[in-house]
Design a protein around this nucleic acid. Structure first.
Length: 426
DNA sequence: ACTGTCTGCCCC
DNA sequence: ATTCTGC
DNA sequence: GCAGAATGGGCAGACAGT
């Protein structure tokens, strides 16, 4: 598929704020692919729609090229000096629109002299596949001289793009696509186009949350059908999307969940999803980044004290004082966020991993099991240590109990508490 | 080797 | 996290 | 009222120039 088709979709999506209309634009676009049975680029199209090159679970480098360098590229391309471009940027508010504005002016001028050539240019749009591989090249270029190389590739792309295409090309590069569409809406569009029924949305959502690669899910959907999407499950090495909690006034908990329910400390640290396969420990951040290297000590304590060969579980790392008695605020923990001297820092800032959930044990998924079942299994397989504990969890029967639990939680330096329904799921 | 500029990232 | 808009 | 999208600031690492 050509990039101008995708640019047109971006433009349509941006023209409305109405969700249903966006879904309609998306499904029409997908139906067009369906008619032509052209699914070659489906995954890449989805990634670009999400404003990225690869799914979050692939640890792929970023472009390393943003506003300042793009201004330089536009400047080289149009002959307008960067100071003037910055002025236009302030007026337009967006680097993509700025380029579109400048380039459409330039092309108009050109067309006075050489009308035919311009026709030729705007008629021959870039293939998405080519765009995609050039963008990957930009991302993979590093080291001395990399700025110039990146700039060169970008200029090549711009010269093949219409002003409208350039606008979205640059927005993709700066990760500011902002056409009002994210994974949920894309899923709705896919559902409508390829299953005909909006009700099937849940199936795709579930698959996406267990294997957060929408390009791959789309490929399964179009090539093998919804039946296969249903079979997607949690796998070792693939982090799942974490569930979000909603904020609530504490006195409402009892009404909302019904008594009894479970309450846990809400810790002031960093959330980790841990995949243990034998001796191999991988730590994923909330945004699904592999950050194992930041916590060698945590990996070690897991390796030695979690009695399960293969397991996926979740916890919160919290900075501790040197006696492992008091929890320290997040700010202290953030000293860990570095690439070098990790070993030194890990002695300087001790941490404890507070485990609170189990997602998979052996070959058995626990995501649909009850809270108490998950907790019981966790207690079986974890040997508690100073650096590895289960998060405090109690059964609450009344607002009074809740209040006293909340107060001790705050006294011990927690952010607050989490309430969890005792019902199946949550 | 040192400094300045830019980008990215992760938090909230 | 917080704020805004459409549903 | 609920769901989805967008938003901003601060700090560490990478590259370029001297």
């Amino acid at each position: 598929m050509k990039f101008n088709k995708l640019s047109q979709l971006f433009s349509d999506l941006e023209s409305t704020t109405k969700r249903l209309e966006m879904i309609d634009f998306l499904s029409k676009f997908f139906e067009d692919l369906k008619e032509k049975e052209d699914y070659r680029d489906i995954d890449k199209i989805i990634y670009l729609l999400q404003g990225q090159l690869t799914p979050n679970i692939k640890q792929f480098p970023k472009m390393g090229l943003a506003e300042k360098m793009i201004i330089e590229a536009i400047s080289l391309h149009s002959g307008i000096n960067s100071k003037r471009i910055k002025e236009i940027l302030i007026k337009q508010g967006d680097i993509g629109a700025t380029a579109e504005f400048i380039l459409s002016k330039k092309k108009k001028q050109k067309s006075l002299f050489d009308y035919n050539k311009v026709e030729e240019i705007s008629g021959s749009s870039l293939e998405i596949l080519e765009l995609y591989s050039e963008l990957k090249k930009i991302a993979l270029t590093e080291g001395i001289g990399s700025h110039d190389t990146k700039l060169g590739i970008l200029r090549g792309l711009i010269s093949k793009c219409s002003p409208l295409e350039t606008k979205y090309l640059l927005r993709i590069i700066t990760s500011t696509l902002r056409v009002g569409v994210q994974s949920q809406t894309i899923i709705e569009g896919l559902t409508l186009a390829f299953t005909g029924k909006r009700d099937n949305k849940g199936v795709i959502e579930r698959a996406y949350s267990l294997s957060p690669d929408l390009g791959e899910i789309s490929r399964i959907l179009v090539e093998k059908g919804l039946v296969e999407v249903k079979k997607v499950d949690i796998e070792y090495g693939t982090p799942i999307l974490s569930m979000l909690a909603s904020r609530e006034i504490y006195t409402e908990f009892t009404n909302r969940l019904g008594v009894p329910f479970v309450a846990e400390y809400k810790l002031d640290g960093e959330r980790l999803q841990i995949h243990k396969v034998g001796e191999n420990i991988t730590l994923f951040s909330r945004r699904l980044l592999d950050i194992s290297f930041q916590y060698p000590d945590v990996c070690k304590v897991i390796r030695e004290n979690v009695k399960a060969n293969k397991v996926i579980f979740e916890g919160e790392v919290v900075a501790m004082d040197h006696f492992y008695e008091k929890m320290l605020p997040f700010q202290v923990l953030s000293k860990r966020r570095r690439k070098f001297d990790v070993e030194d820092i890990s002695k300087e800032v001790p941490v404890c991993l507070f485990v609170f959930d189990l997602l998979k044990f052996g070959e058995e998924s626990f995501v649909d099991k009850s809270l108490s079942f998950r907790r019981k299994k966790l207690e079986e397989i974890i040997d508690e240590k100073d650096e590895l504990r289960l998060v405090k969890s109690v059964l609450i029967n009344s607002t009074e109990e809740l209040l006293s639990f909340f107060n001790t939680a705050r006294k011990e330096g927690n952010e607050g508490i989490m309430a969890k329904s005792i019902q199946e799921n949550s």
